[in-house]
């Protein structure tokens, strides 16, 4: 399984990446929404199953990225999770309405991310094995 991490912070990409690698994923990275769209386009049919998306980024923000992904029928299979410090209720509602499946608020612990993967059915093993 592959996951795309979209975040303008290299540090955050590494943190999320490490947790996902431990959960059995291979990682693709992008520093903003536009770069992420380009990465997806370059994959052809071999798409990542998950994208973890920051909200505030230069060039193209995460909400726009999610809206763009949802417009492409061939990208329907990608599970989208916002991973962002944007934490107001209306932000979460907007992201879900735009097509995000889950929403993880920064700061988070590794366990919390793993539990979200479990909710999304993207964990090969049970949460208990990771705690």
């Amino acid at each position: 399984m592959r996951a795309l991490i979209v975040d303008d912070s290299r540090a955050m990409r590494r943190i999320v990446g490490r947790i996902l690698v431990d959960a059995g994923f291979e990682i693709l990275e992008a520093g903003d929404g536009q770069e992420a769209l380009d990465v997806l386009a370059a994959q052809g049919g071999d798409l990542p199953v998950l994208a973890c998306v920051d909200w505030n980024m230069p060039v193209m923000d995460g909400l726009t990225f999610i809206t763009q992904v949802r417009k492409q029928v061939e990208w329907r299979s990608i599970t989208l999770m916002m991973v962002t410090t944007e934490s107001e209720q209306d932000r979460i509602v907007r992201a879900l309405a735009a097509g995000a499946h889950e929403y993880l608020i920064k700061p988070f612990t590794g366990d919390a991310l793993v539990e979200k993967l479990d909710l999304l059915g993207l964990l090969p093993t049970t949460v208990g094995d990771h705690s």
């Binding site: 934490s87 107001e88 209720q89 979460i92 509602v93 879900l96 995000a100 889950e102 929403y103 993880l104 608020i105 700061p107 988070f108 612990t109 366990d111 919390a112 539990e115 979200k116 479990d118 909710l119």
Partner: peptide, 20 residues
Amino acid sequence: SQLEVNRGLPATTLVRHFER
């Protein structure tokens, strides 16, 4: 706390049953 609502709570449930 923010950390506690991150734990196992689906985002749809968070916005439905909680307020900031």
